[in-house]
Design a binder for these strands. Structure first.
Lengths: 345, 345
DNA sequence: CTGAAAGCGCTTACAG
DNA sequence: CTGAAAGCGCTTACAG
């Protein structure tokens, strides 16, 4: 293997000079620098990562804690992962993908062995057992997802409460007075997926403020079941004119449910979901939606993490909790309720 | 940070003894070993990964080269990734996820800096520009996907030719005499996705052998387009009684296409696809399919890679090309063609 | 069964 | 502007 010693020899300088010529950390005469760069090219030298990590205490690797849970939609996870991965590379970091079942053990292993300079964590639960370990680690951590206790970590998430209010408000303004909200499966909630009730509670409150009726339900994550559940909900609430959906499986099943019932949107029923543009593309969903922005959240988390890693002053700054304001992507699936249309005639 | 020196001091032994007590690479008295283990626990010692890598030339990390291409279905990719990741952890390795656009540069960076002990590569193209770099690297590599030239690497893939034959044969046996095969988009082929024509060519040949008609077509990867294309194909070939689908987007769109046309399967049309059980679950597809076995292939690749890494004798053995025999998961969407059913009456 | 020492390949004060 | 040397934290022959 070719070492910096080989480079130094070929360039006729000492190893320290070769090292400085490459890092630019002290002034080097142009002539020497060029000889070193030539030698690097000719020999095909790449610094040994382990040796460098040992000498500098920096690995240029970030851990990405990501679990693929059966009740979370995999392509959505992928959006976060791609945002994290792309941003990390732009900033010069590689990604260690940690999908272990036993995440707490994995965190200990990876942080204590100094394999990584920082940690990005996904699938955040309301009270997440991984959090104490992250706080105890010497490396900084950034979360995508809002836990109950944010101390000691940087937190990024969609403002799900605002999203809930926004969905209700959007349909209220169009004239709707009775709505149905279908949320994620209840076991996502039980596992600590707080975004479910954050959206739902805010939606309920906003409906109360506006004096309109909002029926809430937890939907399955599986397709055949969720289709039936939607049908049942529509049967149970025939006066409802709008559907709010915070459940990927439900929204994916909706087009065929509507088709079967002979309903078109927005003429017969206004529909608004909460998912990502990428999800909409994959399933070619025709509905308006509140953008979940998984890739943006991933980017933000990595940027903050790297700032904390690379700047000692940033490392001392207070941790941030940043909730992204949701935005509606209008695909034309919401409009005035049928009753109003009739009146207009 | 707590080092092996601290452990040695606490246990009252030399650093080498502490090291040997932990690795078990030479006989240590029970008494000393227990003192060392106690010290490790009390101090919370975990070996520094960089230092160990430098001393042993082993990182216990595998690179996973995976690109998320817009025309490849993301959840399918995830199945490979999960198979690789899970197996790696079982065998004691962590995963460096490499999604760089410039994969060749990434391979150089990662192998020459000795960040990893081996490489698993996905999205293999017929003539893959990454392959020469993998061959030049000192670390072994395993591919999931069959390239034209397999020298110097271990290769695992589904036997797509057998899959193509199997699909035709399955429907031929049921009495079908005219079939339609919808493949991946043509640009997947152009990018070098050889599995597309491997399946198609074998299907065409088998149809020829059996003397039956097989219409072939490339389908889009996008949902609204592919739905229309399926409709057009069914209109163009009204005598076709069976549909073979090697295209995730097409099969995901099929249920609503059939529904719109008032067709049921297998009564009006026999359908058989090529995808994974996980894909079937996510989209709750009711069709019989040839299992693509992404998780199994990922497992096989990692197992072989680790064998080559850890055993010097295995490292010298000739490289393998292993094609997994496809299996049909029967979901009851194939049967006798409508004509036969009528005759039976 | 145990210890003192060399060495893995870097970086970075220290010295000139 | 450059070099000799120490040190990062391990492992593993070498010696007893």
């Amino acid at each position: 293997m070719v070492t910096i010693g080989d480079v130094a020899k070929a360039a006729g300088v000492s190893r320290s000079t070769a090292s400085y010529a490459l890092s630019g950390k002290r002034a080097i005469s142009d002539e020497v620098r060029l000889r070193v760069e030539d030698a690097v090219k000719n020999l095909g030298y790449t610094p040994n990562a382990g040796a460098r990590a040992l000498a500098t205490s920096q690995t240029m690797v970030l851990a990405l804690l990501a679990q693929f849970l059966p009740d979370e939609f995999a392509p959505a996870m992928l959006q976060y992962i791609m945002g994290v991965s792309d941003t990390a590379r732009e900033l010069g970091y590689d990604i260690l993908l940690v999908t272990d079942e036993e995440q707490t053990k994995a965190i200990e292993r990876i942080t204590r062995s100094r394999m990584v300079d920082g940690v990005v964590m996904l699938n955040v639960a309301e009270t997440d057992e991984r959090l104490p370990l992250l706080r105890a680690a010497r490396q900084p951590a950034a979360l995508v997802g809002l836990p109950h206790d944010c101390t000691g970590v940087d937190v990024f998430d969609l403002d799900f409460e605002e999203a809930g209010r926004m969905m209700v408000e959007h349909l209220h303004r169009l004239g709707h007075r009775e709505l149905i909200l279908i949320s994620q499966p209840e076991h996502v909630l039980e596992r600590g997926g707080a975004y479910v009730w954050r959206l739902q509670d805010a939606a309920v409150e906003q409906a109360r403020v506006r004096g309109i009726v909002l029926h809430t339900a937890f939907g399955s994550a599986q397709q055949p079941e969720i289709g039936q559940e939607i049908n049942d909900l529509l049967d149970a609430h025939p006066a409802a004119t709008g559907l709010l959906i915070n459940n990927e499986a439900a929204v994916a099943a909706l087009p065929s449910v509507l088709h079967e019932r002979g309903l078109t949107s927005p003429e017969d029923l206004s529909v608004i979901g909460r998912y990502s543009a990428e999800f909409a593309r994959t399933f070619s969903l025709p509905f308006s939606f509140v953008e979940g922005a998984p890739d943006r959240l991933g980017r933000m988390a990595v940027r903050q993490l790297v700032k904390r890693i690379e700047s000692t002053s940033a490392a001392k700054e207070p941790h941030v909790v940043r909730l992204l304001s949701p935005e509606i992507a209008d695909r034309g699936s919401t409009g005035a309720p049928p009753a109003d249309r009739h009146r207009r005639r």
